[in-house]
Design a protein around this nucleic acid. Structure first.
Lengths: 255, 255
DNA sequence: CGGTGTCTTGAATACCATCAAGTCTTGTGG
DNA sequence: CCACAAGACTTGATGGTATTCAAGACACCG
């Protein structure tokens, strides 16, 4: 976890050589093509991808609303949540952003009003200049290919969330959220060696806002999952005791 | 509406000159750049955008699952619904597709498993060859600009749906669906001259599947809206009697 | 003309929210 | 280091929203 590591309040530019070294999904997001452009073609093709390393403490915003106007954030370390607010005080989490993930491909193209990105743990992130990314995108086909893949993935995740919120009960939504996160954590290599123990910094209110439920009801559903010895959840770590039952509760087959 | 017009069962190739003439949002989707490429550069740049005009009767699929493998559909006339199924028989409508709209920007890049596109009315549509569109996209910056705009719009619509399903009551979800459709119909020039009467071919079960409710409850909510003289709904046409109250029920301000 | 699909309405029930009280943890300042 | 405040979690009681079940009216189509 990023918690307890030193916190940088102000911007903290980093030499190109160190860019994205700790980023587990370097090849999956925009960083690689963008930075390949920076490394190999800067002089010859005039492509320059400016980026700034920053950090945010848990429970604070990753970018201020103002900054998102021309900054495209990528989470390098820690967990974040992308959400929108309702006038009445409610909020809906659109996605949990894990280390190494671009917050959204849509942000590469345009500012999106009313989006907020909250640091769940302490977060290290980088902001790219949108105009730089767009230039890379228009000039380097591999960057477009890369981002289009992320784009399709993002669409699929949104579809699943819509399906879950529209059609599923609480007792399936919460296991589904957990299973989805577990799969992504495994893919990022962030699981324990045996693949049953995971960092899990989400508070009940995060799960509630992500699944369209209340924290009270989240507590009840999780208690039931614990009572059935399906999982254990303590100290910000999740242990899956009965993966078959968990996947079954999520309406999926254990691989 | 497209209803009652002649139906072509088989594919029906059309000369380039006639392409997209009846399409009210020609400039908003991929057609224009794709076809500009076809018209102006075919010989010189080797770009060829093949497309096929097709049609589907109401209540049938717009593309068979097989066809979506390398066909990208655009709705030229009529209404369609893009949805996914649950194993248990439930389904969730992800978006209502109006005349002149690309079904989804994601389909330009990749097949998406388990997506279905149902014709709500009789529908005239065209399928582009994905490889052709991708070639245009990589070679012509204005095509990329155009589709990225559509992508951001699509993302915003998905966000709103997620927010509605996660946070709002039935009595707001249904007015919101109606308001959203009314806005889009106006933008497409498909409203009555006074802007209060609209074609509205959705069945209660469409509204139910789009809002995560049951047809029974949709009927109750709509009855209440009628009882309050907010709208009238008959013969597949919607008349807005009290726009201020409708927008208010949808949690928005009447412009 | 029956069959199918659509819409309506009421009654009973399931799911989840809200309210409330209490425990425990975490963070902060004295 | 301790005291206190704020946040996080749990559990039970109560109520509201939406589903399910059921029955009947109506329109459309072959």
């Amino acid at each position: 976890m990023a918690a307890k590591s030193k916190i940088h309040r102000a911007s903290d530019p980093t030499p190109t050589q160190q860019i994205c070294c700790p980023c587990p999904a370097y090849t999956l997001n925009i960083c690689q093509p963008a930075l390949a452009a920076y490394g190999s073609k800067q002089a010859t093709a005039g492509l320059q991808v400016r980026q700034v390393a920053r950090s945010a403490m848990a429970r604070r915003l990753v970018c201020q609303q103002q900054e998102l106007r021309d900054a495209v954030p990528v989470i390098c370390d820690g967990w974040a949540a992308c959400y929108i607010n309702l006038p009445n005080g409610g909020r809906q989490i659109l996605s949990i952003v894990l280390p190494g993930e671009l917050v959204s491909t849509a942000l590469v193209f345009e500012t999106i009003q009313n989006w907020f990105i909250e640091a769940i743990t302490d977060v290290q992130y980088r902001t790219f200049k949108r105009s730089d990314l767009l230039e890379v995108l228009f000039k380097r086909p591999e960057a477009l290919e890369c981002i289009s893949r992320a784009w399709v993935e993002e669409r699929k995740h949104a579809d699943q969330l819509i399906l879950d919120l529209g059609c599923r009960l609480a007792e399936e939504r919460i296991p589904r959220l957990i299973v989805q996160l577990v799969k992504r954590l495994k893919a990022l290599g962030l699981s324990d060696t045996d693949g049953k123990r995971f960092p899990f910094p989400l508070r009940h209110h995060h799960i509630a806002d992500a699944t369209g439920l209340t924290p009270v009801h989240v507590s009840k559903v999780l208690s039931e999952l614990r009572r059935r010895n399906i999982l254990a959840l303590s100290d910000r770590f999740l242990v899956i005791l009965d993966p078959i039952a968990l996947y079954h509760a999520a309406g999926e087959k254990w691989p």
